[in-house]
Design a protein around this nucleic acid. Structure first.
Lengths: 156, 156
DNA sequence: TATTGTTATACTCTATAACTATA
DNA sequence: TATAGTTATAGAGTATAACAATA
């Protein structure tokens, strides 16, 4: 309690409490990384969610829209506009699936593979520069801890 | 959905690349913590940003709207509705500052202090439960790493 | 009855630009 | 000229509810 003013215990607890919430700090960190990511994707005109969708289609070709929505953690309805854009730009296509005429399988097209590879290289190098203050071990630790949070949420 | 395809080295690199981006993992973790936070604040009817604004006014009474916007990392214009709500609910008030009639100092009111204290207790206990998979050292490490990211962003 | 993809709709968060009153 | 607060407006991102086609 080394302050000019009288500080009660309750006030001291208050001072640090909010800025010690994991949620608040997660958000502030994410906003910074997201802004950097958006700058890095400007030349490709890919928003975070469109790039995320493309990534899953490239790495899991043939998955359905429902699958993808689940993987991305969004509603099926919200995915429609994303796939519309990716299809209009000829980065992927909706493909009928024999045996179930309700579903649409998503397949990357050559232009989609190409932009995905170029964008991923750029995203990684931008992130490397932005996060230059963290060494490899710290980045790995961070990913592990974030993974634990994701695991908490999936069971909740 | 059977995939028996040849996997090249490039495809293997691709497989892990996107889901190893810090930005993507930050977002997914934040979405989970945010959802939990919103559930915990339902009884108080406080959104994350309104609670954040209230917190800074409680812990830094007398700061101006411009100060607060800077602290929150948002535009001044976006703060108006937040303060309007907090003032309407009598959690704080705008106060003229002698010497500069342009600025409004923000002062917490008794009801604001009361709900802040109750909400903070609840937010912390919800976060403790959600993040029960992380021990105290891991949480501290996470806060330190997130702080490094914030530091990177402020200089960029 | 249940599921897939879709549309319509609305809400939250945020940014930009322009205005006013002060400085 | 510059700054504080404000208004108007628009753009992302997301969710909910309802629908048609299909299972």
């Amino acid at each position: 309690m080394a302050q000019a003013e009288i500080t009660t215990d309750e006030e001291e607890r208050r001072d640090s409490a909010f800025e010690s919430l994991i949620g608040y700090n997660l958000k502030r960190a994410y906003v910074i990384v997201e802004a950097d990511f958006k700058r890095s994707m400007k030349q490709f005109d890919l928003s975070p969610r469109v790039f995320a969708a493309l990534s899953f289609v490239v790495t899991s070709p043939g998955l359905t829209q429902s699958d993808l929505a689940r993987r991305l953690g969004i509603e099926r309805s919200g995915l429609v506009a994303i796939i519309d854009e990716l299809e209009a730009r000829e980065f992927m296509k909706r493909e009928p699936v024999p045996g179930d005429r309700r579903v649409q399988a998503l397949r990357p097209l050559p232009a989609g593979l190409e932009i995905y590879n170029a964008a991923m290289v750029r995203a990684q190098s931008h992130e490397d520069i932005l996060l230059g203050g963290l060494d490899a071990a710290e980045k790995q630790t961070l990913l592990t801890l974030l993974g634990k949070i994701r695991a908490s949420g999936e069971t909740t």
